[in-house]
Design a binder for these strands. Structure first.
Length: 176
DNA sequence: CCCTGATTCGC
DNA sequence: GCGAATCAGG
């Protein structure tokens, strides 16, 4: 893809609006977020430095790539996590629970008000191909958010909301 | 692991 | 000039 004047302008506009590089890349199409970031730098557009709290300052330049990178180089240090999670509820646990529940309760009452698996309260801008896009609450209300739990493969919903989304009419089973 | 932007450097 | 690879931080 070429950086036509139009595309550059759109880039500037979106960047100025505070969209993330990946989002801009998505809208422009045909480019990766890296391409966008690279272009932003080349254009000397103001980065997001310390403002929003994203970036941390000063980078020690560059270590020493020098030699070709062996595959083993990547397989280093794993995060030494020793602390257990404070909350005992994981998405998986909840999924299991709802799995059994759903079989007994054919139709969960009040989709929006019902107890929902720990939503991550994601903003619209944070949704990805792997996050559940089930809306929760009133869009007019400011507590509106999306489920955001892990959704399998490219499914738009998590395993729980998938059932609600594609609820088969109970009668369909007795066909024929 | 998902995401973010920043930097380097071969092309 | 371009952007993948890489890094660093959340």
């Amino acid at each position: 893809m070429n950086w036509t004047d139009e595309r550059v302008e759109k880039l500037k506009k979106l960047w100025a609006e505070g969209l993330s590089a990946s989002q801009i890349a998505a809208q422009l199409g045909g480019v990766s977020r890296n391409a966008v970031i690279g272009k932003v730098h080349r254009l000397n557009l103001p980065g997001r430095a310390k403002a929003g709290g994203t970036q941390t300052a000063a980078r020690p330049k560059r270590p020493a790539p020098a030699a070709p990178r062996p595959a083993t180089f990547q397989a280093r240090a794993v995060t030494p996590r020793t602390v257990a999670r404070p909350t005992a509820t994981t998405a998986e646990d909840l999924d299991k629970d709802f799995d059994t529940q759903a079989e007994r309760l054919p139709v969960p009452a009040n989709i929006n008000n019902a107890v929902v698996p720990s939503s991550r309260k994601l903003e619209l801008t944070q949704l990805t191909e792997r996050t559940c896009k089930w809306p929760i609450g009133d869009p007019l209300n400011d507590d509106f958010h999306f489920c955001g739990n892990e959704s399998p493969d490219n499914s738009p919903y998590c395993t729980y909301h998938q059932r609600l989304a594609y609820q088969p009419s109970a009668d369909r089973r007795r066909m024929r």
